[in-house]
Amino acid sequence: MTGHPAARPIPTDLERLAGLAIVPRRYYGRWVAAAIILLLFAWVVKAFAEGQIAWKVVGQFLTAPAILNGLVNTVIMTACAMTLGIVLGVLFAIMYMSPNPVLRGSALFYIWFFRGTPLLLQLLLWFNLALVFPRIGIPGLIEFRTIDLITPFVATLLGLGMNQGAYTAEVVRSGILSVDLGQSEAAKSIGMTRLTTLRRIILPQAMRVIIPPVGNEFISMVKLTSIASVIQYSEILRNAQTIYYANARVIELLIVAAIWYLAVVTLLQIGQFFLERYFSRGRGERRSRQKANRGIAAGGPP
């Protein structure tokens, strides 16, 4: 009458049912996909093995002085440009969020200009700065000829760092915005000044949001340094090119450069993993607790 369909009968051997062995589900799709990918991979490996690649040459040039020298320059430039970028990013993010209209306006201008023009153009501008400012310094006190000051290293550093700063400013700003307003009210209530609140309470929590995109940009930066070869900064790709112009081993030297880029990026990714873990302290607990619960649901200890 009530419209409930008749209930199915309950098996009589419930006791036995609960004790039966479990056969895991089979994932046939995964096997097919794996087979296709392995085939493709084998084909690429075969092409490289049979192609005109002298692997001995790759091994030989992997540790050649010019390559290692380029590697060091790439790493130094990445570190310096990222440091400058992060310092400027934090600075301009704070200026952007300041109640002072002059500070906010200049931050807005900075982000607008450096995000709005191509990086290559900015590099060339810095490199040719002497055309606009022949001399730099405080007149009568210390002065330099711009040509002497703006070496390829300095021009690259300014170009990459200032450009990076404009992007990092937006990342830092979104990180700061992600921190609950109650945190800074609590900080004020124990007598912290604005700057202390930022340093001790807001930024450490914003880091959780800031690190993944900055890690991403760090990795981009490693590869972006290669653009500096246009203004004669001798990073690894430029040095590899110089060598293959002489010996015509193009693919071999490109592979050498690729191996080193991958090595540096791998190290950075490992570093990012540990940084992320550090700055998510006090946040990750809920997830691990869920995992523990799932373990219990799935059978728990025998």
Binding site: E185, S189, R281
Partner: peptide, 21 residues
């Protein structure tokens, strides 16, 4: 900030610093 030291505040939503024990 110095004047605020005279008062301690307890919030409805606790507002403990999440990244600290």
């Amino acid at each position: 900030a110095r004047q605020r030291l005279a008062t301690g505040m307890v919030f409805q939503r606790f507002n403990l610093f999440h990244h600290m024990t």
